[in-house]
Write a protein that binds this DNA or RNA. Structure first.
Length: 853
RNA sequence: GCCGCCGUAGCUCAGUGGUAGAGCGCAUCCUUGGUAAGGCUGAGGUCGGCAGUUCAAUCCUGCCCGGCGGCACCA
């Protein structure tokens, strides 16, 4: 009996797959296609357990679908532009390009060691000039279509990274990478008109039925579509001639209006402040506070009465005061509102504070119009409109429509849809990114380059010793000539947000060597991605941008699909216990020794026996030092054990806690599986297989197949563990020919069932028992539904709901026959002594319950 | 405040309207030429709490408690 040795076995099979070119994706019209993609990694230089989990999950799907006859595309690439390379350049004086490609080489080797079924012939990095040059080409196409534009705008400026951030990259007022408090700056910026697609991006979420509900809700909230009315108030007396435009989603409550409010940054507020020092002081106060989201949320509502009045749109004799209020946002709607305190909590808080009228106009069902009052809580529910002239008696929706119609007829405004989503600012003041292919000419202004001038590549000698944009500092690179007039011009030195790089890479994988950015025929075959896998942290960043770019490129005729990812799976994190010394320093798991006494665990520092505090299990991170290096695990237990463990211990969407005991358990399983295959004799004869094991095998195939289909990988693995115990209970040693035959059938199935999880072990086992070819070429095992059911059922017998015994009956036995067996059973009869049977409930093949008194 | 997920053995998690499961850990024993290893056996659970529906609830329904995540002055 030879011990299983992954160090020899695993590289051997990886070489065999490579030699056979097993994972090359081939567009085969005779077979259905399946595109599996995991979010591509940033090449930090080292693989972490999160990668191991992410790519193992995708590999299970890819191998499973291949075995089921699909033509599978499972590619890999590198999200390779970005700040870490520039930081490394600044800190260590290395060249960012060389640094990045060295990291890629290291990580590629590690990923290959994982034994992933990837078509490496399609690999590319976003920093390859062959890739970003194509990105420049479609950037120009979108510029042509008016989807890319330049504007001066107030932007989020990260003072640490010295670059602009998109709204999506600002979290709680801080840069998502640097954590620095973001400042506001006015800059000339490139932007993409994602807002042109806001409606489609919202509507099409409904078609993404294989996305997690959670992600769809997050995107819907982020886009924030609302339908309402934009209209103008006319001033009574003093005030700008053009009036004051407001936006509302509640035109039905117009007769409950109490005042009109504008944001502190609103032009009207600024105009008032120019003449009124008190107003100026108030605005200054509004600007002072409100640095972080948390402060904005808790800030008290304050306001300033400008003294201006506007006329109510439906009653020229009714005048409303105009206030400046801190709770109104300039960058949403028109920065001005009409307030109906009875039916909006913010307006109500404000009205109560400043003694403004509160007039209810929506009457909840069951309330009386004469007595209904609003106290400290605004009524926002449905009801009948009252106190509202021509709207009286209508429900909320009808009144909205009627009010909008009246305003439109008066020429004061129109029904409008407003979004929270802003255009996507894509300029970054960084050198290590995709250069924006335009020049600035003194005579012609901003001039896009012709495609013949592409790619616009980086210079090789960028100098990174200082912060800021090294591309802009370069002595010669930016100086060029204008393609229009031939005069002197300077290149744009901003580069594109790296989220642009990742917004179309999945389409490039269809044919990464194509002349055009996207090989349409290839993309038509492979897209959309059937199963996309990655972390939930990209729910509104990458996943929204990729959807937008897909739609924009589809409208430009470069793609046929309008959604890039038909299925999305968001996997959980890999966590580990945290350990701290008495002085609070974090300690790495490998420095800690754990002692188990009964049910309590004690930790000490291996080096000196100092006690260590065991903390919660948290996401593996450098800062808390609770990481486990994949390569060290591979070295001790092999790749298969590591893959198996990250998938066995939790459902894929949940966090998985890494423990040394857990991986040892997986390692033992690997060995026990091998023992079982190794114990099977080479010649098993041709006997009729023993039926019990045979049934168990078919049941197993059914269960594991369904578990993989529904992303319950841990559950499938649990079934495999159980089945191995069953095989051990039916050993080859001393087995009858019938049992040996059943074992052979079981093992042939088992090797294929474990292949998606532990592919190297599967090959070794398959070869050991004489499987034909390699497992990667074998069909997924089928099962006979009739054999997944037991021939004889053990039925528990309950008396008054409590288990009192069991009987055996043939599968599918009729209730009357079962009842007879039960009543003939002496043990049951004893339990029923002195009782009258009122009812016997027989659930076919499941259970019997006797109700007796 | 709103929405979602979760609560089952000491730990991490499966599971089902009808006999409560796995891995790890723990205990006993065996093996001592797989040996910083292997194997056998076992203990351990009012399935978060309280009601309801049902012949029968860990599972369905409602309320409550606890944990996690997302959104939130968006008119």
């Amino acid at each position: 009996m030879a011990r299983y040795n992954p160090k020899e076995t695993e590289p051997k099979w990886r070489q065999a797959w490579a030699d056979a070119d097993s994972f090359r994706a081939v567009a085969d019209p005779a077979r259905p296609k399946y595109y599996v993609l995991e979010m591509f990694p940033y090449p930090s230089g080292r693989l972490h357990m999160g990668h191991v989990r992410n790519y193992s999950l995708g590999d299970v799907i890819a191998r499973f679908k291949r075995a089921r006859g699909f033509s599978v595309l499972h590619p890999m690439g590198w999200d390779a532009f970005g700040l870490p390379a520039e930081n490394a350049a600044m800190e260590r004086g290395v060249d960012p390009k060389a640094w990045t490609y060295e990291n890629i080489a290291r990580m590629r080797a590690e990923l290959k060691e994982l034994g992933l079924s990837i078509d490496w012939s399609r690999e590319f990095a976003t920093c390859d000039v062959e890739y970003y040059g194509k990105q420049q080409a479609w950037f120009l196409d979108l510029y042509e279509r008016g989807l890319v534009y330049r504007k001066e705008s107030v932007v989020n400026w990260d003072p640490v990274d010295q670059t602009v951030l998109a709204n999506e990259q600002v979290v709680d007022g801080r840069g998502w990478r640097s954590g620095a408090v973001v400042e506001k700056r006015k800059l000339n910026q490139w932007a993409m008109r994602i807002t042109d697609y806001a409606d489609q991006l919202t509507d099409d979420l409904a078609t993404l039925d294989r996305w997690p509900e959670k992600v769809r809700v997050m995107q819907e909230n982020w886009i924030g579509r609302s339908k309402g009315l934009k209209f103008r108030f006319h001033f009574a007396g003093e005030g700008p001639a053009e009036g004051l435009e407001v936006y509302t989603t509640r035109p039905d409550t117009l007769f409950g209006a109490s005042f009109v409010g504008v944001a502190a940054d609103h032009p009207l507020a600024e105009a008032v402040a120019a003449k009124d020092p008190k107003a100026a002081a108030f605005i200054a106060e509004c600007r002072k506070g409100a640095a972080t989201e948390a402060e904005i949320e808790t800030a008290e509502k304050i306001g300033y009465d400008t003294g201006l009045k506007v006329k109510h749109p439906f009653d020229p004799n009714w005048e409303l005061p105009v206030w400046i209020a801190n709770f109104i946002l300039m960058d949403y709607g028109t920065g001005a509102i009409f307030a109906c305190p009875a039916h909006d909590q913010r307006d109500l808080d404000f009205a109560r504070k400043y003694g403004l009228p509160v007039k209810p106009v929506v009457l909840p069902a069951g309330e009386d119009a004469a007595s209904f009052e609003v106290g400290d809580e605004a009524y926002v529910g449905p009801g009948a409109i009252f106190n509202s002239d021509f709207l009286d008696g209508m429900d909320v929706e009808a009144a909205k429509a009627a009010a909008i119609a009246r305003i439109e007829a008066q020429g004061d405004g129109d029904g409008a849809t407003v979004f929270r989503l802003r255009d996507w600012g894509v300029s970054r003041q960084r050198a290590w990114g995709c250069p924006i292919p335009v020049v600035h000419c003194e005579k012609c202004g901003v001039v896009p380059l012709p495609k013949s001038a592409l790619p616009v590549a980086h210079p090789d000698d960028i100098e990174f010793s200082k912060a800021g944009n090294a591309l802009d500092r370069h002595p010669t690179w930016k100086h060029t000539t204008c393609p229009t007039c031939g005069g002197p011009a300077t290149r744009e030195t901003d580069t594109l947000d790296t989220f642009v790089d990742s917004s179309w890479y999945f389409a490039r994988f269809a044919n990464p060597h194509a002349e055009e950015p996207i090989d349409k025929a290839a993309a038509d075959y492979w897209l959309p991605v059937d199963q996309y896998i990655g972390g939930i942290e990209h729910a509104v960043l990458h996943l929204l941008y990729a959807r937008f770019v897909t739609k924009a490129l589809a409208d430009d005729g470069q793609l046929s699909v309008r959604e890039p990812f038909a299925g999305l799976f968001t996997q959980g994190m890999v966590t580990h216990e945290t350990y701290r010394r008495q002085n609070g320093e974090w300690v790495e798991p490998k420095e800690v020794e754990i002692e188990v006494v009964g049910n309590t665990r004690r930790a000490t520092l291996g080096a000196n026996g100092e006690p260590v505090t065991i903390g919660d299990s948290e996401k593996m991170s450098k800062s808390k030092r609770n990481t486990v290096a994949p390569e060290e695990i591979f070295d001790v237990y092999g790749v298969d054990a590591a893959r198996l463990f990250v998938m066995s211990d939790s459902p894929p969407e949940r966090d998985v806690q890494w423990t040394s005991g857990g991986v040892q358990g997986a390692w033992r399983f690997v060995n026990r599986v091998w023992d079982e295959f190794d114990s099977q004799p080479a010649e098993v004869g041709a006997a009729e297989p023993e039926p019990e094991l045979r049934r168990a095998t078919h049941k197993l195939v059914k269960q594991v197949t369904e578990a993989i289909d529904t992303f319950r990988f841990n559950s499938g693995i649990a079934r495999l563990y159980e089945f191995l115990n069953l095989l051990k209970a039916n050993p080859a040693k001393g087995a009858s020919p019938a049992l040996l035959a059943a074992r052979q059938e079981a093992l042939l199935a088992f090797a294929r069932l474990i292949a998606p999880f532990t592919p190297h072990l599967a090959e070794e086992c398959w070869a050991r028992i004489g499987g034909r070819g390699m497992v990667v070429e074998a069909e997924w095992p089928g099962f006979d539904p009739a054999l997944t059911e037991d021939a004889v059922k053990v039925l528990p017998v309950q008396v008054n709901g409590k288990r009192r015994g069991e009987i055996t009956a043939p599968a599918g036995a009729e209730p009357a026959d079962v009842e007879k067996i039960v009543l003939d059973d002496p043990e049951i009869a004893r339990r029923l002594e002195g009782l009258t049977i009122r009812k016997v409930i027989v659930v076919k093949d499941r259970i019997v319950n006797i109700v007796a008194a």
